[in-house]
Nucleic acid binder design. Sequence first.
DNA 1: CTATCAATTAAGAATGAATCTTAACGAAGG
DNA 2: CCTTCGTTAAGATTCATTCTTAATTGATAG
Lengths: 150, 150
Amino acid sequence: MNSQEFNQQDLSRIKQLCDDAGMKLTHQRLEIYKELLAVMDHPSAERVHKRLQKRLPTIAIDTVYRTLATFTEFGILKKLNVSNDRTLFDINIEPHHHFVCTHCKAVEDIYWHDFDKTTLPEAVTEVGQVQSRHLELHGICNRCMNEKGQ
Amino acid sequence: MNSQEFNQQDLSRIKQLCDDAGMKLTHQRLEIYKELLAVMDHPSAERVHKRLQKRLPTIAIDTVYRTLATFTEFGILKKLNVSNDRTLFDINIEPHHHFVCTHCKAVEDIYWHDFDKTTLPEAVTEVGQVQSRHLELHGICNRCMNEKGQ
DNA sequence: CTATCAATTAAGAATGAATCTTAACGAAGG
DNA sequence: CCTTCGTTAAGATTCATTCTTAATTGATAG
């Protein structure tokens, strides 16, 4: 991790976020946040734990689960239910969508601002009031496609 | 269950589907299929099992899980990963989308054919080849909204 | 009608992700 | 230093889902 990946601005941000949520910015919480920002894929709690163990050999898996849950509660993270086995976490809280590779299970962010602004079909109002929309694209990612070709 | 809910046509259909998949249409499989068609909400395996027990008191939860997995494998059902606790199942295999109530967790089908036909943003091609798209709308359903008002 | 055989099922054990319990820790203020 | 209160580590626990195994079913052939 270098200064480009986690800078003073990120530190101020997570300090502020914890402060707003009325919780202490502990060493573990900071490291979990840094790890998520550094890698920016969509890891499971288990994967975050495994990565952190290099730097924090004593960190308990439960602390990771608890911290991720707390961060989610305060809107610092989003949960992702793209597969039905483990829950994934997304540090990117801007409105965006996902491409899920059916082959390698990788999840990629997709931005589609025009779609975010389109009016939903009228029939939706008969169901309820929409607060957010999330599009899931399923298919084969280019990386897997290339591996198949070779 | 009356003839309107499960007719001869439905029976032929599931017979054909099982035949195509090279599996026997057993009593348990038929009852699970009937149950899903009859209710048409998006139940969990546990819920299907609970409902079936009235008619099939000895059916094992494992049979329900196994049958739902088999049906999914052969495209008779679709899995739904809207929440991260239990997996839900959808007997409706036409392309469609979902509204998920954040309050009561109910899932409603949404059709939006115009959207199904729109071209995806160009940036998606840099990620991979899309095979299907699924939109998840989150919000409060009208039923919950009305209950709140009272 | 009976035997055989393969597929399916029931029951309970096992797995594994996620959560809970409890005691110890540690930072902040007095 | 001492106390307090939120946080953590460790291990136990829960609960959805899957696996194992033996029994059952149903189709087919004799």
